[in-house]
Simulated assay, not measured.
Amino acid sequence: MKTLKMLVLVVAIAFSSVLAASTNPIEEAQPSTLTEAVGDLLKNPDFQLTKDVNAVVDLIINENDEMVVISVSTDNKAVERYIKNRLNYKKLSKDAIGLNRSFKVPIKMVETN
Rank of each mutant, 00 (worst) to 15 (best):
T33S: 15
V110K: 15
V68T: 12
P25A: 00
R86P: 03
A20K: 00
L41N: 04
V72C: 03
S32N: 09
I83L: 04
D40Y: 05
I13H: 08
K51C: 02
S71E: 14
A20M: 09
M67N: 03
L87M: 10
I60S: 14
F47K: 02
P45I: 01
E27Q: 09
R101I: 08
E80A: 15
K43L: 12
D46F: 05
V56L: 10
K5N: 13
S93F: 06
S93N: 15
N64T: 11
N100G: 08
V8D: 09
L59A: 07
K94A: 15
I83M: 06
Q30M: 07
L19Q: 11
S22E: 10
I26K: 11
T33F: 05
A21M: 10
K43A: 13
N85F: 11
L49E: 04
K91W: 09
T23G: 00
I13P: 03
D95H: 09
L87Q: 04
V18K: 05
T33A: 00
E111M: 14
V38M: 03
P106G: 08
Y82D: 09
V79L: 06
M109N: 07
L49N: 04
L87I: 09
T3C: 02
V72E: 02
A29F: 03
E63K: 15
E28S: 03
